[in-house]
Design a protein around this nucleic acid. Structure first.
Lengths: 151, 151
DNA sequence: TATTGTTATACTCTATAACTATA
DNA sequence: TATAGTTATAGAGTATAACAATA
């Protein structure tokens, strides 16, 4: 098999993301939330509520799964469902007062937690990493994922 | 809310990984493998077998979970357990002939597609990206795990 | 008929802890 | 005692398809 000089890139990309994901998930779990639940809280934060379908698109959670995840957040009284007055099929998902409080307290905590990782980095480092990753991401996207993008 | 200059880094890391992940997700699903299972196949590829514990460390799958994931791959006859002759508690996880075949057939297919993505890159680009990602990964690992210093 | 969201299946992953067997 | 791996438990996410209500 011919050597593929880009394989280390993919390996590091995957392992670095996993390291971030694991790091993040570990902290999130300490707060009593699963990664999916935290994703939803974070997505709903600073909004007036988001349509169910749009929430699924943003979090990449399919609708059948999302119903269950939202159910568990409703049980925890962190979010609520609000019927759409204009379309009886639709509904909004919205943070409750308790959910807002979690967002206001926990999200900054989470960012502070993440901030530790970057204590040795400069703004120039950030710019460099972002540029490297953006170029890579755009290469993947340009090469063609069969994903349909409606916007 | 104070600006967090590292947030774009995390955003791009996640989105770039997602772009890569969705790029290869099709093949994985065609094989009837879950992401975790595919991760293990890929990790075992081109090795003589990897100790169970090391496999868990590389894939960030905890031992209790890993037993189940390996079990399912054993059922599919893609990997096998091999006892360590020097330490009766340890064992290696190794691709079977069928597992090797999956790795050998499917990976080049991916690589052929992936190669297009990197057509504009030089070896120096690869080295740069890997260095950037490794540093970031190690930052997460160093900050995230209060493990008894392993190295 | 098409769309939104729920329900029903069935499976997989997940962390945790207790357990077995080696060392 | 310590380590490697399994088993047990309980929960949560996942895809998929069938379904109800609404448009």
């Amino acid at each position: 098999m011919a050597a593929k000089p880009f394989l280390p890139v993919l390996y590091e990309l995957a392992r670095t993301f996993q390291a971030f994901d694991s790091f993040s998930a570990g902290h999130v779990r300490e707060l009593g939330l699963t990664p999916s639940q935290f994703d939803i809280i974070a997505t709903l934060g600073n909004t007036q509520g988001i349509p169910f379908k749009e929430l699924g698109e943003k979090t990449l959670i399919t609708k059948g799964t999302l119903t269950g995840v939202v159910d568990r957040l409703v049980e925890k009284k962190l979010v609520k469902r609000v019927a759409c007055p204009k379309d009886g099929r639709r509904q909004y998902v919205q943070l409750t007062a308790a959910g807002e409080q979690v967002f206001a307290q926990v999200f900054p905590e989470h960012l502070a937690h993440l901030e530790q990782v970057f204590s040795g980095y400069t703004q120039q480092d950030f710019d460099n990493i972002v540029a490297v990753l953006q170029k890579l991401k755009q290469a993947f996207q340009a090469t063609g994922t069969p994903m349909e993008e409606a916007e």
